[in-house]
Simulated scan of single mutants.
Amino acid sequence: MVFLGYPLVLYICSLVKKKHFHIAGNQIPWSVSVIVVFRNAESLIEKKIQNFLTFDYPKEKMELILVSDGSSDHSLDVMQPYLSPFIRLFHSSDHKGKAYGLNLGVEKSKGDILVFCDADSILEQGTVKILLKYFSDPAIGGVCGQRMITEEVSHIKSGQKKYIAWDSLIKSLEVKCGLSITSHDGKLYAIRKQLFQPVPDGVTDDAYISLSVIGQNFRFVFDPEAKAVIKTPSRNERHELKRRARIVSRSLNGLKMNKKLLNPLEFGFFAMGLFINKVLRRVVPISLGLIFLASWILSRDNYFLGTISFWLQVTGYSISLLYPVFCMQWFSKNAPGQYITKISSVGFFFCLGMIGTLFGIILFLSGAKITKWDPEKG
Score class of each variant (00 low, 15 high):
Gly360Glu: 00
Trp30Pro: 00
Lys231Val: 10
Asp137Pro: 04
Ile370Ala: 07
Leu8Glu: 03
Gly105Arg: 02
Thr315Leu: 15
Lys377Arg: 15
Lys342Ile: 13
Leu288Cys: 04
Asp205Ala: 11
Glu225Tyr: 11
Gln125Val: 12
Asn253Leu: 02
Lys231Pro: 03
Arg192Met: 02
Ile286Val: 15
Asn217Thr: 12
Leu179Asp: 00
Gln160Ser: 13
Phe275His: 07
Ser31Phe: 04
Gln160Arg: 11
Ser234Lys: 07
Leu288Lys: 04
Leu195Asn: 06
Ser309Thr: 14
Leu4Val: 09
Arg192Ser: 03
Phe331Ile: 15
Ser172Arg: 06
Thr371Gln: 02
Leu173Val: 00
Ala119Cys: 11
Ile122Leu: 14
Asn263Met: 07
Val346Ile: 15
Gly378Asn: 12
Arg244Asn: 12
Gly268Ile: 12
Ser172Cys: 04
Ile355Pro: 00
Tyr208Glu: 01
Ile45Asp: 04
Ile297Val: 11
Asp120Gly: 10
Met148Lys: 13
Leu15Gln: 05
Gly254Asp: 02
Phe116Asp: 01
Asp56Arg: 09
Gly273Leu: 08
Leu10Asp: 01
Asn103Leu: 02
Leu123Glu: 13
Ser287Arg: 09
Thr371Ile: 08
Gly316Cys: 04
Ile87Gln: 02
Asn277Thr: 14
Tyr82Ser: 01
Glu240Gln: 10
Pro198Leu: 03
Phe275Pro: 05
Lys372Met: 07
Lys176Cys: 07
Gly316Asn: 04
Leu132Tyr: 04
Lys342Gln: 15
Lys18Tyr: 09
Arg300Ser: 05
Ser84Phe: 07
His20Thr: 07
Pro285Leu: 07
Glu124Gly: 08
Arg281Ser: 14
Leu290Thr: 12
Lys187Gln: 15
Ala271Glu: 13
Thr307Val: 07
Lys108Leu: 03
Lys278Leu: 06
Leu290Ser: 10
Ile297Lys: 10
Arg235Thr: 13
Leu132Val: 05
Phe222Glu: 03
Gly356Ala: 11
Phe292Gln: 06
Arg238Lys: 12
Gln50Tyr: 09
Thr204Pro: 00
Ile45Gln: 06
Lys96Pro: 01
Phe86Asp: 05
Val115Cys: 13
Cys13Arg: 15
Val314His: 03
Ser172Phe: 04
Phe292Asn: 06
Asn263Asp: 15
Asp206Trp: 07
Val143Leu: 09
Ser309Ile: 13
Ile209Ser: 03
Arg246Trp: 06
Phe222Ile: 09
Ser212Glu: 14
Asn40Gln: 01
Phe116Met: 03
Trp296Gly: 02
